[in-house]
Amino acid sequence: MTVLSETGVSRWIRRFHPSGGARARLVCLPHAGGSATAYFPFSRAAAEAVPDVEVVAVQYPGRQDRRGEPCFDDVGAMADAIADDLRRWADLPLALFGHSMGATVGYEVARRLEVRGTPPLGLFASACRAPSVHRIEYVHQRDDEGLIAALKELSGTDAGVFGDDELLRMVLPAVRGDYTAVETYRHRPGAEPSCPIQVLTGDRDPVTSLADAGAWHAHSTASTAVEVLPGGHFYLHEQLPRVLAVVAARLAEWRPGNPPG
């Protein structure tokens, strides 16, 4: 899908439901192995639930319409490229929503936007431990069968993909690249974002403990709040109405001219 903004074609951003009356733009970053279309249901529901917020989604290279491009295997390099592309979308105030790996990438994008003098309204960090919480993991070094097993454990991949061996083998390079990026990521000390952070996590998430989620408090000079919802690592699918309610409430607080929460 080719998407046009006012300043031309965007390699990184996909807009499924344009909003002429939007007062803010929510940039959504997918999980490891995910694509922009993972946020299509989110975007469709938000168009009704939060009509003054336009949802756009990041398309990482190495999948779907960018399948011919090499994958990024470094979070910092990916954040650099996304922050560069977001300049053309800054006609509206931007907020960031990242799920799992997307939250880590979103955090690094927020740091870069801050340095450039255009900090986001805020960051929604979903199903992701804080950047400073490091776990030694080697999923990216597994063979293909081990990588597939990891995807099944988290239940974040469309079940139909597992029944289509050709399709599954096609997406594995992107999955491996993403896992390499997130598992080799190390938080670098430096200025933290000045925007508030809203953390969302499932109460049965096998990879993000409540302590890991709470550690996001160290990564903003503004306020940080944690919302715990029923579900596992991909609680987002079942809890979409509640997530959108949190998004709407926080963006109402974060927009210029509104009182802080």
Rank of each mutant, 00 (worst) to 15 (best):
V139T: 12
V175M: 08
I82R: 05
T208R: 12
V243T: 15
G33P: 00
R250Q: 06
P193N: 01
E137I: 02
R250F: 02
P260H: 13
G160I: 05
P193C: 09
F40M: 14
A22L: 11
L200I: 11
V199D: 00
R116Q: 14
E192A: 14
D144Y: 03
G214N: 12
R142I: 05
W12V: 03
S220F: 03
H134F: 14
H17A: 10
I197G: 02
V115C: 08
L240C: 11
V56H: 07
V182K: 01
S132H: 12
G214V: 02
W89M: 08
S100Q: 10
A103R: 01
D80K: 05
G33R: 08
H99T: 00
A249T: 12
W216S: 00
D205N: 03
D65F: 08
E145S: 15
Q59D: 01
G146Q: 03
T118Y: 05
Y235Q: 08
F42G: 03
D158P: 00
P30F: 12
A22W: 13
V58S: 06
I13A: 02
G8Q: 08
A245L: 07
T224P: 07
Y138K: 14
F72P: 07
A191H: 09
T184R: 15
L244W: 07
R112S: 10
V246K: 08
S132C: 10
G106W: 06
D212F: 07
A110V: 01
L236C: 05
A149D: 15
G117E: 07
T221I: 06
L86K: 02
G20K: 01
H237N: 15
P93Y: 00
Y60A: 14
W254Y: 05
A150D: 12
R88G: 15
Q141H: 15
L172T: 05
H217T: 05
A159P: 01
M101I: 04
G102C: 00
R169V: 00
R44I: 04
D91Y: 10
R176P: 04
A150V: 05
A103W: 01
R116L: 14
A77P: 08
L92H: 10
G102Q: 04
A95H: 04
L96E: 00
D85R: 10
L151I: 09
E69N: 00
D178P: 09
A110S: 13
V56L: 04
S10N: 10
M1G: 15
L168T: 05
A222N: 06
R176W: 09
L167E: 03
S155E: 15
P61C: 11
P230V: 06
S10Q: 04
S5E: 02
A79Y: 08
G33Y: 00
E54S: 01
P70I: 07
H17L: 09
G98V: 00
E69K: 02
R44K: 14
C195D: 06
G33Q: 02
A83H: 05
H134T: 13
L121A: 06
H134Q: 13
V243D: 03
V207L: 09
G202W: 10
S220P: 04
T118R: 15
D165T: 13
R112K: 14
A81P: 10
H17D: 04
D143Q: 07
V133R: 12
E114V: 04
R135G: 12
A57Y: 08
F72K: 08
G146D: 06
H187I: 09
L229V: 07
H99A: 11
P196Y: 09
S155R: 11
G163C: 07
L229W: 03
Y179H: 14
V3C: 13
D158G: 06
R255L: 14
R67V: 13
